[in-house]
């Protein structure tokens, strides 16, 4: 498998990168980790005329928390999510996902920005960002704009990102007191796309009531799915067995899987139900101080 040739640019500033993308009018692709793109180029299913390698642009790889948000730079390698102290302590959903994306070697090179902006329904991080109600910062020829994750994914591999825009940062609302989160991925083996995966973020108030619940689903529809009804349902509930079951059922109804080697539609829906229930329980346990 040998890719066709292409022009290669390694700009050192974002403006330069955006200029190059703009100049190629959709025929250039951003090369970040390249863990999906290069594979498709080797199969010659993707044949971009030019690649704009953004790896030499400084200051795009970071994880930092301020008063309002956790900010993750686009060039942060996905392996870093599982290693970051702040993420492990307060945004466990991302640490969980960071240990499940592809395999450990691929995670060393694959980037958060690539995982989020590719629009692949099988990628793990979009569902987490949907659960977390994150925002993406995109920079293009007209400057910066912010796109809510829940409005970003339009169809399989179709996102709100323009052809000359680069996703530069993901911003996750700062985790408040009593918050807990988790990501569970059912996969056939390491390196597989999920059969079904569920990300949950919530907080448990002093009263014991669930607040701010968000549930995201991976690879059970044309895009990552925000399970709105299930999320809304949980708010104000205590997380009883019946609550969890109901949340699972609502999430299952929100999924729209297709049959493939991983199984038929009804099985995948049921896995959404089961893993939603289990993952919500895990997030609640974490919110209450468990691991």
């Amino acid at each position: 498998m040998y890719p066709p040739n292409f022009e290669y640019y390694a700009p050192t500033t974002l403006d330069e990168a955006i200029g190059l993308l703009d100049q190629h009018q959709g025929e250039a692709k951003v090369l970040a980790g390249g863990q999906s793109l290069i594979g498709m180029m080797k199969l010659r299913l993707a044949q971009p005329a030019a690649l704009v390698d953004i790896n030499r642009i400084p200051d795009l790889s970071y994880v930092r928390e301020d008063a309002s948000a956790l900010a993750i730079g686009a060039l942060t390698r996905t392996a870093e999510l599982g290693r970051s102290d702040v993420i492990r302590a307060r945004y466990a959903i991302l640490a969980d996902a960071g240990r499940e994306i592809a395999d450990p070697t691929v995670r060393n090179w694959g980037t958060v920005g690539g995982n989020l902006s590719h629009g692949d329904p099988g990628n793990d991080l979009p569902a987490c960002m949907l659960a977390l109600n994150a925002e993406y910062v995109a920079q293009g020829p007209k400057g910066r704009r912010t796109i809510p994750a829940r409005k970003f994914y339009q169809d399989s591999f179709v996102t709100a990102l323009g052809p000359s825009e680069v996703l530069v940062e993901a911003r996750v609302p700062r985790a408040g007191p009593g918050s807990g989160s988790a990501y569970s991925k059912m996969e056939r083996k390491v390196g597989d796309y999920a059969t079904a995966a569920v990300g949950v973020r919530l907080a448990v108030a002093k009263s014991g009531a669930i607040e701010g619940a968000g549930i995201g689903l991976t690879n059970v529809g044309p895009t990552a799915i925000y399970a709105a009804a299930a999320s809304d349902f949980l708010n104000g509930k205590t997380g009883s067995a019946a609550d969890l079951e109901k949340a699972g059922e609502l999430a299952a109804s929100a999924s729209a899987p297709v049959a493939d080697n991983r199984g038929p539609v009804e099985f995948k829906r049921d896995m959404v139900r089961v893993w939603t229930r289990r993952t919500v329980a895990h997030a609640i346990a974490r919110a209450k101080g468990g691991a």
């Binding site: 498998m1 290069i38 690649l51 395999d103 070697t105 691929v106 060393n108 090179w109």
Partner: peptide, 27 residues
């Protein structure tokens, strides 16, 4: 494997293991 699954091509780039069949040399 050609598709970044088998790891036979693993080398270290600046000390980090990567799959060298899924990386262009220019990178």
């Amino acid at each position: 494997c050609d598709t970044a699954h088998c790891g036979a091509c693993t080398v270290l780039v600046d000390g980090t293991p990567v799959k060298s069949c899924n990386l262009f040399a220019v990178q």
